[in-house]
């Protein structure tokens, strides 16, 4: 097999996995956020509408998480083999949370007598899954113990003040995305309530981003060097500046009564966070331990999958876009459920 000089398939695969993670956060973030907001939405038509606004799309959104996991196994098997045991507790808890919330979509309609119970399961599952995603990221960033080709730490190594902070931050972030989604897709009392939530969670998220950023710099001299040393700092300093500007634009668009734009400004905030994350860890796949090249699958695996991804990802994006288009516009009270 000959690959043109200058093309590094490992970097391409890192970009594809990165893309899957971005797609996951963009797509599943808001629907998990609606679960997080569920206790703040009164039972009855408003809850039904909130649920209906995501019922046709949540399954597709969650598939990006499967691609993230499956793609990591396929493209960086060593990273998959180290990270998943290291984050055993948060990941298993996340999966159980996703089970609870996933079945609630159908079950709450099948059993009016226990609807309040399934609504609680939806809220608990969504919040737990989100918190554990954030905590897992924190646990990974603070460094995991690796000996040879395996994880060598304990079950609770991930648990720290930092991982609690990243967990809470992600809950705030997804709640913001959920509120912005409801502002876009619903009307009346639910929309008004969503705007109020969006205002609240916007500030909270900005504070959380600041706290996580500072705490990350304190985790390891390596992280600090990537952000603060010259000449990097000329480039990296743009990220916090852009974050503040984006937040301002988010609030301006919210107060002007825009329905769609705040959602995209909130997504832009997430985009900046992920860019910041990239600056912190590049070119590692297990931060401070294993680089993407050390973890990469052999060339034959990379090429075979690249053909599949190259053909399928554009097709997937096309029909996913079509599915969103079918359910465009405001969800009415009756819903399409």
């Amino acid at each position: 097999m000959t690959i043109p000089a200058g093309i590094d398939l490992t970097v391409i695969w890192a970009a594809i996995i990165g893309f899957a993670i971005v797609a996951y956060v963009v797509l599943d973030g808001f629907d998990l956020g609606i679960g997080i907001l569920f206790p703040f939405i009164p039972a009855g038509p408003d809850r039904d509408t909130a649920m209906n606004s995501i019922a046709p799309v949540w399954d597709g959104n969650e598939t990006w998480l499967v691609l993230g996991g499956g793609g990591l196994l396929a493209a960086f098997p060593l990273a998959y083999a180290i990270i998943l045991p290291a984050l055993y507790v948060p990941l298993i808890t996340m999966l159980l949370g996703l089970v609870l919330r996933g079945v609630a979509f159908e079950f709450r309609w099948r059993d009016a007598g226990h609807r309040a119970w399934w609504d609680r399961a939806f809220a608990l599952g969504s919040t737990l899954a989100t918190f554990m995603q954030g905590a897992a990221l924190g646990g990974l960033l603070q460094g995991v113990r690796v000996v040879g080709r395996g994880y060598a730490g304990g079950a609770w190594d991930w648990f720290s003040g930092f991982s609690m902070l990243t967990g809470i931050s992600l809950v705030l972030g997804y709640a913001l995305l959920g509120a912005c989604w409801l502002n876009w897709k619903t009307a009346g009392s639910l929309q008004r309530r969503a705007v109020a939530h969006a205002r609240r969670f916007g500030v909270l998220l900005l504070a959380a981003i600041g706290a996580v950023s500072l705490a990350t710099l304190g985790l390891d001299a390596d992280y600090a060097a990537r952000w603060l040393a010259l000449p990097n700092v000329l480039f990296t300093a743009q990220v916090p500046i852009a974050t503040v500007i984006t937040t301002a634009l988010f609030y301006r668009s919210l107060s002007r009564g825009h329905e769609v734009q705040p959602f995209f400004w909130a997504l832009a905030l997430f985009g900046l966070c992920i860019a910041g994350l990239g600056i912190s860890i590049w070119p590692d796949v297990v931060p401070m331990r294993v680089t993407i090249w050390q973890a990469a699958a052999p060339l034959r695996s990379q090429v075979f999958m690249l053909i599949g991804a190259g053909v399928m990802v554009p097709i997937i994006l096309a029909y996913t876009g079509w599915a969103y288009w079918v359910f465009r516009g405001k969800v009415d009270g009756a819903g399409y459920h």
Partner: peptide
Amino acid sequence: GPLMAYEV
């Protein structure tokens, strides 16, 4: 891994 990626 690649076969499972193709499944997804």
